[in-house]
Design a binder for these strands. Structure first.
Length: 860
RNA sequence: GCCUGGGUGGUGGAAUGGUAGACACUCGGGACUUAAAAUCCCGUGCCAGAAAUGGCGUGCGGGUUCAAGUCCCGCCCCAGGUACCA
């Protein structure tokens, strides 16, 4: 505490308590006021507590919420906890403490820290993804996916991390110079085939692209999502393989270049490789496959800058001209995209060109470049020509443009049953299971084939049954009825996953083995004539599951009958503003959109898109300009700042650092300016060292502001209002500083002017604003007061400043009565001394007058 | 490589095509004080000058315009994302 007058550590807790106890910021269902739903990305309550990055976005949303409330909106601004996750489970493995208990402690620490910053949330609407009453509905959504045939089980080669004892998704893998590592812990990882649940997000790919045009998001984020989904239109073409029954399917976006296909390339893992490779090439090909297996995708990409590959000795037949072309393998072709095989057209694809050059394969130009392409002296291409153009070397299609040729070729192919139009996506289905304890259990029971046939179809997926092998026995998946939800996590002795990669739940024997009622789906411990024996699914859901739909539950957090009440849903709809980091631009936002579309199909929600407006707050870097991290030792702890300067100063400073969306370094020295600003505000209202009001503040309204001060006041109302609306808090604060600097120089200040100032700063510095508001004699809180509105007449001026320029350079200015004529302005300019000095001995070529703004004399 | 952002004083950053550097930090000088803190006043882009003022200045090179940090073309650098997507 540096100042005995403005005692923030005394007043801040008082107001925090007041807002909490009075539910000042609680939303009211079905209120007549217009609704406004503002959402923050909810945090993972880690053991480390709050990081300075959290309060940046959270302060912005808290300020915006207070602003909107003052403007007369019924504001919903909730907070919750994304509390399933690996660190808590790791901690449990280490200490044996139940993740439930650790989570509870972490949450209460987070809550305390958020409250200290003056962040207010509707406490009746807190959600916690690990609460069975919450995850009941996460499981319910999964049952809907299951029944619609949008979930399946697949044996997938996925990243396995022996140190963490779990499977990791691609997005949890870091590519380091030492090879692939786990994002958490930086442990080495390897590929292993494991039974996994997968969701068919690809079925929604087109709708997820289309929906992007209906949302107000940063363009860069929309593009990122569209690119991630990666829709490409083209054709599937099938090539016969010489001497084999099988044919080779490829996907191409350029069917018009089919005549230029001079060889084929298969991914080394392609199932046909071992079959078609000739004796002479077998040994080398097998060695190459082995080498590929140990490479990560990134190594494959990186090392293959210089392309590698081998001939299999086999030949394919081009369906349009029956040309015999060799089949190669190379790791630049990925099994996971398209069909895992390509037709190579080196003349018109850069990668193929490079490969053909390296292995001296034929390059046949089939698109006329009209002399645009780089060629060597012999007239051969120096690089691939990848644009469209008229065809050449293509029999009857010569001269036809690329577009028409694509259609013609696909038509020819489909007549021969050798090809068709095809759409491909980069997006892959969503790997939805983890071999962990601390996640939502799947409401699934596995039964034998015989027993499966006895079970009510209600518990089975639409379409194909879901089957998996357990110890060489085929099992069928059935889903639990809604009444059986939530399926709670059982208590277990050890949280350590078994070394075979199975979840720790596989050791919870009593929980594991159940009897499933074939009619009702009810689970019982004892067998009856209506039950069949089954085994529960031991995988749990990924952390994304709970965070995919939490924004809906805030609206109706305690409903045990429904995920969300339809009336409440139609009142609150979806968030009007979503603030969160750009690091979630793809995965979280895409998964949540997928589920929201699904819920829309199910009639649970009334709109297809969940987040109308999205804002990405930036990142606060350490004082050294680097990302804050423990290892760098540049982490700023918000609690220390609050102790030294108070929450209001921290809030203002976080917002003053720069634009909300920017990445900006923290600078502890700079906070002094904000601290001075608030002390100055305090002194404006309260007399030094006393609790009484500063006599400068005229409470009987006998003084009036002079017109210049009044104009500044209303300009400030206007600018601050507009800046808050666009989340431009940094410039709003500097405008408030200008006004305060001005007011503090006046001898007398009308009380209502001070009050307006307090209202304008209240969203950002709510504690001091409440305190001074009360001391000015108000019985109600400033949080409930209506937002001030600028009076247009007060903004008007009687005179206008005209800038003088000579050859575009500033040479002086003058105040003139409004709307001076061109003649008046010009003569004022010409009679200015500095202007005259510039005109000395020169000739005026042109006289520009921009009304009420500027005179520019062009001279020579 | 590709896709996004972005390059403005010693620092963070302001600027609907119209006075570049608002607002702060830092630093320097002064007032108040026994002293310090707090507070207040003055200065603070660079160069020349006692000052008035003048010249130069928004990554670099061109262009459009009476006027460009802002618009157009070409480069350089930095940060983030992505990884051969056929």
């Amino acid at each position: 505490m540096q100042n005995s007058e403005y005692n923030f550590s005394k007043i801040e807790p008082i107001w925090q308590k007041y807002w909490a106890e009075n539910g000042t910021f609680n939303a009211i269902d079905f209120d007549k006021r217009p609704k406004f739903y503002i959402l923050d990305m909810f945090p993972y309550p880690s053991g480390a507590g709050l990081h300075i990055g959290h309060p940046e976005g959270y302060t912005a949303s808290d300020a915006y919420k207070r602003f909107k409330k003052s403007q007369g909106y019924n504001v919903l601004h909730p907070m919750g906890w994304d509390a399933f996750g690996l660190p808590t489970e790791q901690y449990a493995i280490k200490t044996g403490r139940h993740p439930k208990d650790t989570t509870k402690e972490n949450i209460s620490r987070f809550k305390e820290q958020l409250e200290q910053i003056g962040l207010c949330y509707d406490s009746n609407r807190e959600v916690n993804t690990t609460d069975p009453n919450y995850y009941k509905w996460t499981q319910w959504i999964f049952t809907q996916l299951f029944k619609k045939g949008l979930a399946y089980v697949d044996e997938k080669p996925v990243w396995f991390c022996p140190d963490l004892g779990t499977v990791l998704a691609n997005e949890e893998i870091l590519n380091t110079p030492e090879g692939p590592r786990s994002e958490r812990g930086n442990f080495p990882v390897e590929r292993r085939p494991i039974r996994q649940w997968v969701l068919r997000i690809t079925q929604y790919a087109d709708r997820l692209i289309a929906g992007l045009k209906d949302v107000n998001w940063p363009d860069s984020t929309k593009r990122l999502q569209a690119n991630w989904i990666g829709r490409s239109e083209g054709a599937k073409v099938s090539f016969e393989i010489e001497d084999y029954e099988e044919s080779l399917e490829v996907f191409t976006t350029r069917p018009d270049t089919l005549y230029g296909a001079t060889y084929m390339v298969l991914a080394p893992e392609h199932p046909l490789v071992s079959k078609i490779t000739t004796e002479a090439h077998k040994e080398a090909v097998e060695a190459y496959i082995e080498k590929t297996k140990v490479k990560s995708d990134l190594e494959r990409a990186e090392l293959s800058k210089d392309k590698t590959g081998l001939n299999t000795g086999a030949f394919a037949i081009n369906p349009v001209n029956n040309k015999r072309i060799p089949i190669w393998i190379s790791d630049y072709v990925l099994l996971s995209y398209g069909t895992g095989a390509i037709m190579s057209v080196p003349a018109h694809d850069e990668r193929d060109f490079e490969f053909a050059k390296k292995f001296d394969l034929e390059i046949l130009q089939v698109i006329d470049d009209a002399n645009q392409a780089h060629k060597n002296a012999d007239g051969n291409l120096n690089s691939a020509f990848t644009e469209a153009g008229p065809l050449m070397n293509s029999d009857t299609l010569n001269g036809m443009d690329s577009d028409s040729a694509q259609k013609a070729i696909i038509e020819t192919l489909s007549a021969k049953n050798a090809g068709s139009v095809e759409v491909n996506y980069k997006l892959r289905d969503w790997l939805f299971s983890r071999q962990r304890y601390w996640g939502e259990p799947f409401p699934i029971v596995w039964v034998s084939q015989d027993n499966y046939s006895k079970i009510n179809t209600e518990f089975k997926p639409k379409g194909e049954p879901i089957i998996a092998n357990f110890n060489d026995e085929v099992q069928y998946a059935v889903v639990l009825p809604e009444e059986a939800l939530p399926l709670k996590l059982p208590d277990i002795e050890s949280y350590t996953p078994s070394p075979d990669g199975q979840s720790p739940l596989s050791n919870a024997h009593e929980w594991l083995h159940v009897h499933f009622d074939i009619q009702t789906g009810a689970i019982s411990e004892q067998a009856t004539e209506n039950t069949v024996p089954g085994t529960r699914e031991t995988n749990t859901m990924p952390q994304w599951a709970g965070s995919c739909w939490y924004y809906l539950r805030y609206v109706d957090p305690t409903n045990s009958e429904k995920l969300i009440d339809p009336d409440l849903e139609s009142y609150w709809k979806t968030p009007d503003l979503y603030i969160g980091g750009a690091e979630h631009a793809v995965l979280h936002l895409l998964y949540a959109r997928f589920w929201h579309h699904l819920l829309h199909d199910l009639g649970v929600v009334s709109e297809a898109e969940p987040f109308k407006k999205l804002f990405h707050q930036g990142i606060i870097l350490g004082e050294d300009g680097e990302k804050m991290s423990k290892s760098r030792g540049n982490v700023v702890n918000p609690e220390i700042i609050i102790d030294a300067y108070g929450a209001d100063t921290l809030r203002l400073y976080l917002m003053f650092l720069g634009p909300l969306e920017a990445m900006k370094p923290w600078n502890t020295k700079g906070i002094e300016g904000i601290a001075r600003f608030l002390r100055k505000l305090w002194r404006l209202v309260i007399l030094d060292n006393e609790t009484e009001l500063n006599p400068k503040v005229d409470s009987d309204q006998s003084t009036k502001l002079d017109s210049e001060s009044e104009r500044l006041l209303h300009q400030t109302i206007e600018k601050v209002t507009a800046d808050y609306e666009s989340l431009g808090f940094n410039t709003a604060i500097s405008q408030l500083m200008i006004l305060l600097n001005h007011l503090s120089k006046l001898d007398k200040i009308p009380k209502d002017t001070v009050e307006i100032f307090l209202q304008l700063i209240a969203p950002l510095a709510p504690h001091i604003a409440e305190e001074l508001w009360m001391r000015l004699g108000h019985t109600g809180v400033i949080s409930e007061a209506a937002w001030p509105v600028a009076i247009q007449e007060k903004l008007a001026t009687a005179s206008v400043k005209i800038i003088f320029q000579v050859n575009g350079k500033y040479r002086g200015d003058i105040m003139l009565p409004n709307n001076p004529s061109k003649e008046e302005a010009l003569s004022a300019a010409k009679s200015n001394e500095r202007v005259q000095a510039q005109l000395e001995g020169k000739q005026i070529l042109k006289e520009i007058y921009v009304p009420n703004k500027i005179v520019n004399l062009v001279v020579q």
